[in-house]
Write a protein that binds this DNA or RNA. Sequence first.
RNA 1: GGCGGUGUAGCCGAGUGGCUCAGGCAAGGGUCUGCAAAACCCUGGACGCGGGUUCAAUUCCCGCCACCGCCUCCA
Length: 456
Amino acid sequence: MPLRLFDTIAREKVELVPREPGKLSMYVCGPTVYDVPHVGHGRTATTFDVIRRYLEWRGFAVTFVSNVTDVEDKIIARAATTGSTEPEIAAVFEAAYWEQLDRLDVRRPDHVPHATEYIASMQALITELVDRGHAYVVEGQGVYYDVVTFPSYGALPHRSLEQLLESAGARVEVDDAKRNPVDFALWKAAKPGEPVWDSPWGPGRPGWHIECSAMSLDLLGEGFDVHGGGDDLAFPHHENERAQAEGAGHAFARHWIHSAMVQVGGEKMSKSLGNFTTLAEALDAHGPRAFRMAVLQAHYRRAIELGDAELGSAAAAVDRLDALVRRAQAAGITASTADEVAIARFRDAMDDDFSTPAAMAVVFDAVSAAHQAITDGDHARVASMLATVASLTGAVGLDLAAAETGGDAEVDALVARRNDARANRDFAAADAIRDDLAARGIVLEDTAGGTIWHRA
RNA sequence: GGCGGUGUAGCCGAGUGGCUCAGGCAAGGGUCUGCAAAACCCUGGACGCGGGUUCAAUUCCCGCCACCGCCUCCA
């Protein structure tokens, strides 16, 4: 069965045929590092981490690139208000970004290009666009893309040039320097106090969109396979990237994937609305695995809430996974060979536009089967289901936590004392020890194979 | 205004023209346990509203209502 994904341009599920057999190249737009990451960044990063991991589990050699925008208006503004420099601001918040993504077990990209490292590539691209008549220079202002010269402009958001021209300016003031309201800056002339690079068009800095065109082509080459990002980037950012790359004569991304937003009370989570929760807060409160589980239990193209209720529920779901591992561990059962039927069901679900909710249903079906098998004493089946669960959760980057029996001498000693008390039928003493441990976040479970414990 | 999306049981969230209508969380009852915890068994209940097509619609078509996203920076 072919692997299909919902391509934003095609507006339907299409088969993913790699540029080179067995290899996939992906570019995903990363953050502008001017503030700490919020829950929305976490969702997008997790979504594409899951896709990347699944594609690798599926056998593809994936080259995954995700950029960091380290020169941009908001970084400049932040530097100005805090009295620090743009590179300092970018460094601080990029570090904060990776810190949280590491907690989430999002794998680092193969390449993390920074805008400031690719100025020369961007300038080469802009020069090509000017030479080909797709861009024009406005003295003292910068270089703009002449959108009417790119016939397919609007293909990504599925809007005609007429529609775009009509609605442009509806929400934002039009810059008089531009020939058309939809034209966008490729190069911005220097203003006092801003970071500056020399260029054929005078000192200045790149527009936002050009960096992704230049960096993706430099690192992944002509006609790379997949370009992704949050769906708020589809227009204008991604459409502009496409116009820049193709206008300069390059074959650009062959497929586009966009992941949906995180909402708060039914509205998009965003800095401007002030309704965001930082990723650090969310991970502190419910744990990174609960976050990943919550993301997995909804489809990536659907807007979701990721508040306390949702993350709390997901944390309980993760605990059901862990409980299986603990129970099997206590029974002395280790994983054997994964069940082929379940593996196939999982693959079918994931191959259908990365349907992680259906895929997780397969996982939980295996969890239930394993629990039933333990209850029934069918150890061979437990071993197989355990292998299945481990393989499938691993495919989407979700780790399983084993019981910590033997991992902490003090706790183990208390557990032993409690079991002595139980043997003597001194249940008051036994319960006192259990309550004491519970207060420290340690949960005991008495199984046929002995008492095991884990942290809540 | 333009383009697009969504409305499913207490909550989250898949999916399908009919076959016991995923999965997770929560709730009630039972089993196990000294009591718990974990687990197992059982239970309830759903497809925004109004039409239409059909033997049969939550699923297709039309209309309506509500909510959301993009059209500005944004993951």
